[in-house]
Design a protein around this nucleic acid. Structure first.
Lengths: 252, 252
DNA sequence: TTGCTCCTCACGTCACGTGAGGTGGC
DNA sequence: TTGCTCCTCACGTCACGTGAGGTGGC
């Protein structure tokens, strides 16, 4: 007595393409209730329509199939809603980044002649810090850093210098890497080595920090003094970031 | 005298991964100014940093590489800004759909028991209409339809019936198809054939029309009367849509 | 001289879409 | 009986990521 639909009917009832339905069958996300053993014809039950609708909604929100699977498999409504809300949170975050991107794109397009950047060379002495490590990519970096620094400030009452972070070469070259967020303190658990760096102070929104990197990279390459090693950022104020690019010690 | 950067330096100066840079070289989107013939080492010019930044920004907005290429190749600033604004428009539209999706998702999750849908069988006589055709997919359908109907209303002073549209089977089964938007008028350029259909009236937001399709498909399959042929929608009011699913003539 | 930066294939990923070529049901 | 619905491969798409295996520069 359950109503069976052909794949064509089910397609119209759900707005899912036939190809998509077959794919969902292949990966076990949405299996027809019956498959004719002789012809291979798929039959879907009318009760599967709401599930299919849900899948389509999730996919429209760009939820990966694996996550859709998890959501559908959730043992209870609370777990399911939780999973959905998490996805929506990520969507919101990405949306916010997009908005920022659009704004700073306009800034980029209207930019006038750029003054010569003020790059200086400085030696940073060795320094003890309280630190947190995390493997992040570019997208997740901002949120992670905020969390990490907040956590460190709970542990360090009176820092002996501005907040900072270390970005290893792989973070840039592969797009992901182990970033170290730190707060200077004599009682720290990590000792940062002394380095000589080219420094550029960036004033302005975080999203435009790339300008500073471009200028620094150019300046370092122009003088042929570039060295490997993690780039450091010092967060002087919410609007002011110091970018420190390692250079070779000039033995002058 | 132009400053040359290695791919590693350029990567850090632009936030683009080395793999991405090589890919952009392969597809001719961003070519290094020099490639060592012996070693294959790529060298980028400092002047390429702003271009690379722009590419990254566009990619963060999910602009396809082909479009990025077009934007960068734009002969003048006006053309370029035009292209960017078009992309931003599309992003905005998608964003709006996402918001709707989120809203109606919540509705879907909190839905109570659904009453039995009120499906009726009706014969629609042949009818002359003014029509516009367009090949669209699900995403672009809403915007296209609005435009198309607006255009038709400019041509037809007093329609002899409610606006409508024809969605062929491929539109659902392949995800794209030639949709026909129409306004009934005796002086129309197209004559729609008579059909017998199962009808369901949907009251509510456009985004939840899928519910009606699910109910109709189920009802039609339950009675085993489904037929091929384009599905018609009649737009009675902004909130009320009649969905007409072709069925076989009952020879009772 | 050693390790490091860079190189080139070749293949994988994700969620399907695109034919080709072929068979069953009304 | 004809065309139509459906089927299964096999391969393509998009924008890179993932190693494998190997070479030049400080």
């Amino acid at each position: 007595v359950t109503v069976l639909l052909t794949i064509g009917e089910f397609s119209k009832a759900t707005y899912l393409s036939v190809k998509a339905l077959r794919h969902y069958h292949d990966v076990g996300l949405l299996e027809p209730v019956a498959v004719d053993p002789a012809t291979g014809y798929r039959r879907y039950a009318a009760e599967q329509v709401p599930t299919a609708h849900a899948i389509r909604r999730f996919r429209e929100l760009d939820m990966p199939l694996d996550e859709v699977r998890r959501v559908l498999a959730a043992p209870d409504l609370a777990t399911r809603n939780q999973a959905i809300l998490e996805h929506l949170d990520r969507m919101q975050a990405q949306l916010a980044r997009t908005q920022e991107g659009v704004a700073s794109l306009h800034a980029l397009l209207e930019e006038g002649p750029r003054g010569a950047p003020d790059v200086s060379i400085r030696s940073i002495p060795s320094m003890a810090v309280a630190a947190v490590r995390g493997t992040v990519d570019h997208d997740g970096c901002g949120a992670w850093l905020e969390q990490a620094l907040a956590g460190l400030h709970d542990r360090v009452a009176s820092p002996s210098g501005p907040d900072g972070a270390l970005y290893p070469d792989e973070f840039f070259e592969d797009g992901v890497g182990e970033v170290v967020a730190y707060v200077p303190t004599p009682s720290g658990d990590l000792v940062l080595p002394a380095v000589t760096v080219a420094v550029l102070v960036h004033d302005g929104p975080f999203a435009e920090l790339d300008q500073a990197y471009g200028a620094l990279g150019t300046a370092v390459a122009a003088r042929g003094i570039g060295a490997r090693g993690a780039i450091r950022e010092h967060y002087l104020t919410p609007q002011t970031t110091e970018v420190c690019w390692p250079v070779r010690q000039e033995d002058a």
